[in-house]
């Protein structure tokens, strides 16, 4: 009941072409995440779907219905804003129920629905408080409550967790993902945190300067990035890129190897391809160790080692790529697939 289709959507602000041309098909009930660097047009695209901005060209269909010229409230979508945008002078009850009140529902029904939403979100004890009397996480929940109480066809989230501390963020991430699965409502979620993207999404849209670079499941993006941009954007620490003679040997303009696909050996030489160098920085996280190695011709490479190897700055190591995980890219940055 809540598929969203973007058909040749374009958006310009004055002479700036922020969204050149986006075609996208969001399946009913799926959780789609927009990721991309700051300023790439994620929020703009979300606001176009919401109807808060007019599109310059193209069409938006929700559930097969053309909503290009339909006002926001009539699109059957609800939105959770980054700043939460709670109404400061209304109680939690008033905030959650405002949309229903505007829709002209009878008071008894509003109360019933608000209390239902509040109990899902553990907000029942706070129903009569004002937003300023709540913690950040509780405010976040009120904003979500306001979104779910209208039983929309789709949720739109614009970086909803960026104002929360790390622990709470992990918590809310799980709650939102679970809630979305329970309600089986389509969700579009904007974030620049790729952990959020990878863990929550059914499908990820990687945006760059308003263009869709790749649209696929998290694992597709990780295992088969379509181009250099996606390869560099998805994965942490970043994929290593090597050009020049080493890449030519693989029949590519650039090759990429993720840090976790480099095996670290203490001895020189050995079988297969390998680059030796000096460790310039070693980051010990306990569970992992990130090594930054100056590997001569191959440049500075990042390697990820599970656990502690007792390697430190200044040590010499050899990095051996896993041949099954070497990504090859042509001159234009597109992936070369065998």
């Amino acid at each position: 009941m809540g598929s969203i289709t973007l058909d040749g959507v374009r958006k310009t602000f004055g002479s700036v072409n922020v969204i050149p041309n986006v075609n996208l098909e969001i399946d009913d009930g799926s959780f789609v995440v927009f990721v991309g660097p700051s300023g790439c047009g994620k929020s703009t695209l979300l606001r176009l779907i919401a109807g808060l901005e007019d599109i310059s060209d193209g069409r938006i269909l929700i559930d097969g219905r053309d909503v290009t010229n339909v006002p926001p409230a009539k699109r059957g979508l609800s939105m959770v804003f980054q700043s939460y945008a709670l109404y400061p002078h209304m109680s939690v009850r008033g905030n959650i129920g405002f949309g229903l009140k505007m829709a002209g529902l009878p008071k008894a029904e509003i109360d019933r629905k608000v209390e239902g939403a509040a109990s899902i979100l553990n907000l029942t004890p706070y129903l009569d408080r004002k937003p300023r009397e709540l913690s950040g996480g509780q405010r976040q929940r009120v904003a979500i409550g306001r979104a779910i109480v209208r039983e929309p066809e789709g949720f739109l989230f614009d970086e909803p967790l960026s104002n929360l501390d790390a622990a709470l963020r992990v918590n809310m991430r799980l709650e939102i993902a679970k809630l979305q699965k329970d309600l089986a409502t389509t969700a579009v979620y904007v974030t620049h945190d790729q952990v959020e993207a990878m863990t929550m999404a059914d499908k990820i849209v990687v945006l760059n300067a308003g263009n869709v670079e790749q649209y696929g499941t998290p694992l597709e993006l990780y295992e088969r990035p379509a181009n250099l941009f996606v390869a560099g954007f998805i994965g942490s620490p970043r994929m290593n890129f090597i050009g020049g003679r080493i890449a030519s040997a693989h029949g590519a303009a650039t090759i990429g190897i993720r840090p976790e696909h480099l095996r670290v050996a203490r001895e020189e030489g050995g079988q297969g391809e390998g680059w030796s160098g000096v460790i310039s920085v070693a980051e010990h996280l306990g569970s992992d160790t990130f090594l930054y190695v100056d590997a001569g011709e191959a440049g500075t490479l990042t390697a990820r080692v599970i656990g502690e190897l007792g390697l430190n700055e200044g040590g010499r190591v050899t990095l051996k790529p896993d041949p099954a995980h070497i990504h090859r890219f042509d001159q234009t940055g597109k992936a070369i697939r065998p």
Partner: peptide
């Protein structure tokens, strides 16, 4: 806050309701 007005817009508030509430 501009986002508050937009939230009200998403909630279906017309110009008069937005002003009043």
């Amino acid at each position: 806050d501009e986002e508050q007005k937009e939230a009200a817009e998403m909630d279906g508030a017309k110009a008069f309701s937005t002003f009043f509430y």
